[in-house]
Simulated assay, not measured.
Amino acid sequence: EGYGVFVEVSAHPVLTVGVEEVVEAAGGQAVVTGTLRRDQDTLGQVLTSLAQLHVNGVTVDWTPVLGAVSSGSGGGALVSLPTYAFQRERYWLDAPTVAADATGLGLETLEHSLLGAAVPLAEGGQLFTGRISLETHPWLADHRVLDSVLVPPAAMVELVVRAGDQVGCGRVEELTLEAPLVLPEQGGVQVQVVVEEPDETGLRPVAVYSHLEDATGSDDALWSSHASGLLVAGESAAAGGGVVLEQWPPVGAEVVMSDPEGFYAGLAERGFGYGPAFRGVEAVWRRGEEVFAQVRLPQERVGEVERFGVHPALLDAVVHAVALADFEQQPDGALGSGVARVPFAWSGVRLHASGASVVRVRL
């Protein structure tokens, strides 16, 4: 008949459950409630029932209700409440991190979010410099390990890839992370990437250093070494080839993970506190020895991709899929007994395209 609200007027619900079952069996939706309950305060229960109707969109005439409340000992009045604090939409534009014009200082300005300038060194090689902080790069706060904000290893790779592009080296032959880069809650760190002249084989040594802005002490103690490796002038991106992933998910692949919340909850139990910016793994499949994943950058970060070769949060999420391949997945999506791994060595890294916000991954 088209009715969508059912109220059982009785001293205790007798028909409510039956009405709900009928509605469900008919494939419909309805609001079903009672008025009173046995052993419950009469007026309080009536008000509760009316509230249930109200929050489900049913129009309630509160005038006689408030009159009844006012006549009691507690009194009552209709007041305006603030809007629901956690249900909101932001309309503020996030100001992008823009490097200052360094050409007046004899430097070359880089259009990169982590590296601001480059300068050729008089004795050969090039120096790249930048500044990282939670104020300028707030998304890094979502990458916590054991309650400390760590610059993800993927960001180190991105720094070296960008430096390689500048000196004509299209491949990171190898990169070994020597120490984590911990980001302070206040202030920031200065970052340097040093690329040396090529040796007789064409390999160019590269290293990443950082300096805490408020650090004190001797000059030797101010700079910390975080990564070192080798760059080489590799093949062009067009010569990359690779596996075509047009059929998605791939034929014959079985679902390994379809519950990102359960997956990241399991990582949190192991001390990896990934916030929204780094929770990019959407689904994982397996086909024999192959593992496939779909990784997506959160919408709030999509506007930043043009200032990276590959956004570190996107590449870091790819590494999460690597870790998932070593876990035994439980039915509820939680992680089984396994060891979460942090990447410390990379080899043969080449970037074929930039500006991506979603990627298909084959491991």
Rank of each mutant, 00 (worst) to 15 (best):
T109V: 11
A356Q: 07
L50E: 02
G266F: 03
V206A: 13
E200L: 14
Q29P: 00
G187I: 09
L140D: 04
V69C: 13
A238Y: 06
D219W: 12
A51C: 11
V195E: 10
G188T: 12
S337M: 09
G168I: 06
L81D: 02
N56D: 10
P120V: 01
V32Y: 03
V182M: 07
E235D: 13
T42P: 02
V182H: 09
G75R: 05
L121F: 07
E21C: 06
P331E: 07
V189S: 07
P276S: 10
S148A: 14
V69W: 05
Y274M: 09
A265P: 03
R144D: 06
D142T: 07
V193M: 04
R131C: 08
A233I: 00
R360Y: 07
G188A: 13
P249E: 02
R301Y: 12
M156V: 05
Q330W: 11
Q190N: 13
V22G: 01
F86W: 10
L134P: 07
E197T: 15
G336C: 08
L324K: 01
T97E: 11
G106A: 05
L314V: 01
F6E: 00
V182I: 14
G106I: 03
L181V: 01
V58I: 12
P331G: 04
Q29M: 11
H211E: 14
Q29V: 15
E290C: 12
G271W: 01
R171Q: 13
V318R: 06
G348D: 04
V194I: 12
V232C: 09
S224A: 14
R88Y: 08
L134D: 04
A215W: 06
V319R: 03
T136N: 10
D326P: 01
W346P: 00
S71M: 11
G18Y: 06
W346C: 00
E20W: 04
L50C: 05
A25E: 12
V145N: 00
